[in-house]
Write a protein that binds this DNA or RNA. Structure first.
Lengths: 241, 241
DNA sequence: CAACCTCCAAATGTATAGAGTTGAAGGTAA
DNA sequence: TTACCTTCAACTCTATACATTTGGAGGTTG
């Protein structure tokens, strides 16, 4: 609901420039899948919804473009990125296989701040709610893999990896049919190896987990993405390549 | 030089929106080290220099912020990123060691479009001009490593890696004192292994090259970055953390 | 002399208007 | 029908005006 303070020079929240608020709101909506892939964004309508002018919205969209969450076309506007094709999924898992087994090794080598306990907590708290919906599964998966990566304390790798938006892309494609029980079992194996301080076992377990996930992904992958139903979200229209 | 066509709704070049032109110009200036690290950017002065209004400049700056080439602070403006500290250099080479030996292996395994010849050409054309200045060395180094990475044809890895801006950061720190002869010799070894179709040798050569470069970097690294002289560029002021 | 307050120029952030482009509906001709 | 042209509404992109914030100069007070 637009604040009545929305006049010249106003701010949405606190004294902060509203570009930041618009950016964070849209980023969350895209990552949370509230805005579907290949959705065109109407600047003026979005600005009216948020109670701000077009300027901060446009700047927020440019930021999201830099984050690889939007694509821009001259004089045509902005749209969320497409879902990945088969090669895109392959490329993504190739990147994961380069980084995540290494990260698991580091995590297992870290004896002072070993993340094993936190990882076990994450698994158990998720496992408890056996009726979990798919949405929660991806939240767990994101937290689990992010925690391992974070334990490397390598900001450069963390950033490079996170900007690939692994979970975003996979979640957008496979939200409805994903065998989370298999993943949970593999997560437990990884967490155990890390907690035991066994770098080689942790690295292997992670590599097996990724290979397994990749195999299962390409198995259930839609044959022709164009026939996939697209949901119309809010005031946005849909685009097709 | 501002075109006389610069009035309402005009474009700098062709019919293209000027945001793109401003973005590409600034990006090149930052990557080419024309704009020094930790340089504050004045929006209005920059807009006047380029003959456009503030709006496209601001959008270009947001894009560069998304590329991690600028940092923005609320109500304080934009500035180019700082040079890396010791941990930053270490993190960067850790990322390179994860990706580039793998890329060299792929390149050597590629028998149909083996990049070995192109790499040899790149080395020879650079080696010919023995009086090369440092600036050309970094151009060569960038082209050499980029070519190997490109031969993997993995867009995801290429993008994740390029957004770390390896060469930008290293160039900004070590432009004046860098032993390029050692690097050239190692490049030759890598190119030979790739041309010979020897994946294991290519991977090892790349790993040795990176380890060697890292050792040499931290040896000549400035002890206290704050005492490093900063050049004042154009209309921009300098900032300090 | 140091700490603090007041004031103001410079720069940032936002709103708004107008210029330019796109894409589609509707009409015309072969 | 099909292909092509015209027209127009919707939207993007840029310029400009104005509100807000920041940081420092200069004076005041203890």
């Amino acid at each position: 609901m637009p604040d009545k303070a929305n006049r010249l020079g106003s701010r949405i929240f606190g004294g902060r420039p509203s570009t930041i608020d618009v950016y964070e709101l849209l980023r969350r909506k895209i990552l949370e899948h509230t805005i579907a892939p290949a959705t065109k964004i109407n600047i003026m309508q979005l600005a009216k919804e948020l109670g701000v002018s077009a300027t901060p919205v446009r700047e927020a969209l440019r930021l999201l473009q830099g984050d690889n969450l939007l694509v821009a076309t001259s004089n045509k506007g902005y749209a969320t990125t497409e879902t990945l094709d088969l090669k895109g999924v392959r490329d993504l898992f190739e990147l994961r296989l380069l980084i995540e087994p290494w990260a698991a090794r580091i995590a297992a080598s870290n004896r002072l701040q070993n993340p094993g306990i936190d990882l076990a907590d994450e698994i158990n708290s998720f496992d408890a709610k056996a009726d979990s919906i798919q949405h929660e599964m991806f939240g767990h998966d994101t937290r689990f893999h992010t925690a391992i990566l974070a334990s490397t304390e390598n900001e450069t790798v963390i950033q490079a990896f996170s900007q690939a938006h692994c979970h975003l892309h996979l979640f957008r494609m496979f939200r409805d049919d994903w065998d989370w029980r298999t993943s949970i079992a593999q997560h437990k194996a990884i967490a155990d190896a890390i907690a035991n301080g066994d770098p080689a076992a942790a690295e292997d377990a992670m590599r097996e987990h990724l290979n397994s996930a990749y195999s299962r992904f390409i198995e259930v992958m839609p044959k022709d993405p164009k026939t996939r139903p697209l949901t119309k979200v809010g005031s946005s229209k849909l685009i097709r390549k």
